[in-house]
């Protein structure tokens, strides 16, 4: 089976994000980048499927991003993926979800695929659009936010579960299909030290938009339908107020008054 994982490199969730003074983006100096955590579930599910499917199954990571993305790609290879395609084109900087999806879809098509796993969303901009758009462009079914995955013996169908309000939804789909992975689907393995050494020798193919036969003017930032106008930092948190030196009854009364009149939340 040709198993594909769509991977995005994002700032570590513990990085303190600072918006640039002119609101055109974020300060990238000193940011630590990691694999988007939901994509780790995608990598793990792909590796588990490869181990189960056996034979000449391969896991190929497909990722779009600048040079630094290679480090996250290598981490996925160290976890056990076999090869990668890195779409690296400056024109993609600032491209919208559809543009990125077009580039990824073309790279996946050129590589060939039987099944595709992605994180349910990237944890940076949280759009959750790219996986669905890639599935549309490849004209295959997609189920997003899956928490369980099973495949039939003949690998023609998959049964997946989604958590929904108050229960669980079980969906069967034909393959090929794309699945967006949710937390709880599996426990992603750690990249092992021998795995890190092996990953150095695994093939990472770098392509730009022209190499994919795509027009940077259409797919890249220049052709974006969505434009981010301004980045605004969250307002500084105001200092709290502590009610001191009052009896409980009196303090409660004062608290209610403040919540109603000052904070205006009740």
């Amino acid at each position: 089976m040709k198993i594909i994982v769509i991977l995005k490199q994002v700032p570590d969730s513990e990085t303190k994000i600072k918006v640039k003074g002119d609101g055109s983006g974020i300060e990238t100096d000193g940011i630590k980048y990691v694999i988007s955590p939901y994509d780790e579930y995608a990598v793990e599910e792909a590796l588990k499927l490869k181990e189960k499917a056996g034979g000449d199954s391969t896991v190929t990571v497909v990722s779009a991003g600048p040079d630094r993305t290679v480090e996250s790609i290598r981490t996925a290879l160290a976890m056990g993926a076999d090869a990668a395609v890195h779409v690296n084109d400056p024109a993609l900087e600032g491209a919208d979800s559809l543009g990125v999806a077009r580039a990824l879809a073309k790279a996946i098509q050129d590589n060939g695929f039987d099944i595709i796993f992605a994180g349910k969303q990237g944890i940076d901009q949280d759009n959750s659009q790219v996986p669905s758009a890639v599935a549309e462009l490849l004209d295959i079914p997609q189920v997003n936010i899956i928490a369980k995955f099973e495949i039939t013996e003949d690998k023609s169908k998959a049964t997946v579960s989604r958590r929904i309000e108050g229960g669980e939804e079980t969906i069967e789909t034909s393959l090929p299909a794309l699945f967006g992975c949710e937390k709880g689907l599996n426990e992603p393995r750690y990249a092992s030290l021998p795995g890190i050494m092996k990953a150095k020798k695994k093939p990472v193919k770098t392509v730009d938009l022209a190499g994919l036969g795509l027009d940077a003017g259409e797919v890249g930032a220049a052709g974006s339908h969505v434009k981010i106008l301004k980045w605004i930092p969250l307002p500084e948190r105001q200092a709290g107020k502590i009610l001191q030196g009052m009896e409980t009854a009196e303090a409660s009364k004062e608290l209610v008054r403040l919540l109603r009149e000052e904070a205006k939340v009740i």
Partner: peptide, 10 residues
């Protein structure tokens, strides 16, 4: 990169 990755995974 391998040295960074080794430290990070452990």
């Amino acid at each position: 990169p391998e040295e960074r990755a080794a430290g990070a995974t452990v």
